[in-house]
């Protein structure tokens, strides 16, 4: 297999990696950059567990080739906290029991961060529509919704 050399910019850091062109962004983040916070669920664009932000837009990392994203700013769950200080959304997930098994959590966090940055005043209906992009097999949707609402308020303060 012919590998190509690319540099991914993840959470502001440069990751020079060598990948096959058909390697997905999700696999490259996990296996080549060692950033295993991004989870893989269905691997065909349905569950949203692998959601990351590219150019500040939520994207399913299983539905893109790593080679497509050279030069684009990529943000993953590893970039949310400031050292030991959780991001307000992470804190809200903690406070409102927004996770059970936690598998879907990185995807929901990145989805919601993207949505709140895009529209800090997002209303409940729009927020539900956004959150229905991802699946939680523990079905903890109500608490996820509560957590994101609380974070929206906290972020505006």
């Amino acid at each position: 297999m012919t590998k190509v050399e690319i540099v991914l910019t993840v959470n502001g850091e440069q990751y020079p990696i060598k990948v096959e062109p058909r390697r997905t962004l999700a696999d490259a983040l996990r296996d080549d950059c060692g950033l295993t916070g991004t989870h893989l669920g269905c691997e065909h664009g349905v569950c949203g567990a692998c959601t990351v932000l590219v150019d500040d837009q939520p994207l399913r990392a299983c539905l893109g080739f790593a080679v497509q994203f050279e030069g684009a700013p990529i943000r993953t769950v590893e970039g949310l906290a400031d050292g030991d200080r959780l991001h307000p959304l992470q804190q809200a997930f903690w406070d409102h029991h927004g996770l059970q098994c936690g598998y879907c959590t990185p995807g929901f966090l990145m989805l919601a961060v993207g949505a709140l940055e895009h529209n800090p005043d997002i209303d409940d209906e729009a927020l539900k529509r956004v959150l229905s992009s991802n699946l939680c097999r523990c079905t903890g949707y109500q608490n996820i919704l509560k957590a994101v609402r609380a974070a929206a308020t906290a972020l505006k303060r």
């Binding site: 939520p58 994207l59 539905l63 893109g64 989805l111 956004v130 992009s133």
Partner: peptide, 8 residues
């Protein structure tokens, strides 16, 4: 699709 799909 979803928000993520809409972006692509």
């Amino acid at each position: 699709g979803s928000v993520q799909i809409q972006g692509r």
